[in-house]
Simulated scan of single mutants.
Amino acid sequence: MILTLSHQKGGVGKSTVAWNLAVYFSGIMDTRIVDLDTQRSLTVTNALRKEHNLPSIKMIHFNTAEELAEYAAADSDDVLTIIDSGGFDSAFNRIAIIASDLLITPVSDKPFDLMGLQKYEEILKSLSVIQGETIKTHVLFNNINPAMKRFGELVDFICTSEHFELMVSILRQRVDIAHSVGEGKSIKEYRIFSKADQEMDDLIVEVKSILNIK
Results as ranks from 00 to 15, higher is better:
residue 4 T to C: 10
residue 4 T to K: 05
residue 6 S to L: 02
residue 7 H to Q: 08
residue 9 K to D: 02
residue 9 K to N: 05
residue 10 G to H: 09
residue 10 G to T: 06
residue 11 G to I: 11
residue 15 S to A: 12
residue 15 S to F: 03
residue 17 V to T: 13
residue 21 L to Q: 09
residue 25 F to Y: 13
residue 27 G to H: 10
residue 27 G to V: 00
residue 33 I to A: 05
residue 36 L to H: 05
residue 46 N to C: 12
residue 46 N to P: 03
residue 48 L to Q: 06
residue 48 L to T: 03
residue 48 L to Y: 11
residue 49 R to Q: 07
residue 50 K to F: 04
residue 51 E to Q: 14
residue 52 H to Y: 13
residue 53 N to C: 10
residue 54 L to S: 10
residue 54 L to P: 04
residue 56 S to V: 10
residue 58 K to R: 10
residue 58 K to N: 09
residue 58 K to T: 07
residue 59 M to L: 14
residue 60 I to V: 11
residue 61 H to A: 12
residue 63 N to V: 02
residue 64 T to W: 02
residue 65 A to V: 04
residue 66 E to F: 13
residue 72 A to P: 05
residue 73 A to F: 00
residue 74 A to R: 14
residue 74 A to Y: 00
residue 76 S to V: 12
residue 81 T to G: 07
residue 81 T to I: 02
residue 82 I to S: 02
residue 85 S to M: 03
residue 89 D to M: 04
residue 89 D to G: 03
residue 90 S to A: 11
residue 91 A to H: 05
residue 93 N to D: 02
residue 94 R to S: 11
residue 95 I to G: 01
residue 96 A to D: 03
residue 101 D to Y: 00
residue 101 D to G: 14
residue 101 D to N: 15
residue 103 L to S: 03
residue 106 P to A: 09
residue 107 V to I: 15
residue 112 F to L: 14
residue 115 M to H: 09
residue 115 M to C: 09
residue 120 Y to W: 06
residue 123 I to A: 01
residue 123 I to M: 06
residue 123 I to F: 00
residue 124 L to S: 11
residue 127 L to D: 01
residue 130 I to M: 11
residue 133 E to F: 08
residue 135 I to G: 01
residue 135 I to D: 02
residue 136 K to T: 12
residue 138 H to Q: 13
residue 138 H to D: 08
residue 142 N to I: 01
residue 143 N to K: 15
residue 145 N to V: 01
residue 146 P to Q: 03
residue 151 F to I: 07
residue 155 V to I: 10
residue 155 V to P: 00
residue 156 D to Q: 13
residue 160 T to Q: 14
residue 161 S to K: 06
residue 165 E to A: 11
residue 169 S to K: 04
residue 169 S to G: 03
residue 171 L to Y: 04
residue 172 R to H: 13
residue 180 S to M: 10
residue 183 E to A: 06
residue 184 G to H: 03
residue 185 K to V: 02
residue 186 S to G: 12
residue 186 S to F: 07
residue 187 I to A: 13
residue 187 I to E: 11
residue 189 E to V: 04
residue 190 Y to K: 04
residue 191 R to S: 09
residue 194 S to T: 04
residue 197 D to Q: 10
residue 199 E to Q: 15
residue 203 L to K: 04
residue 204 I to H: 12
residue 208 K to L: 15
residue 209 S to I: 05
residue 209 S to Y: 10
residue 209 S to W: 11
residue 210 I to S: 10
residue 211 L to Q: 09
residue 212 N to H: 12
residue 212 N to F: 12
residue 213 I to R: 07
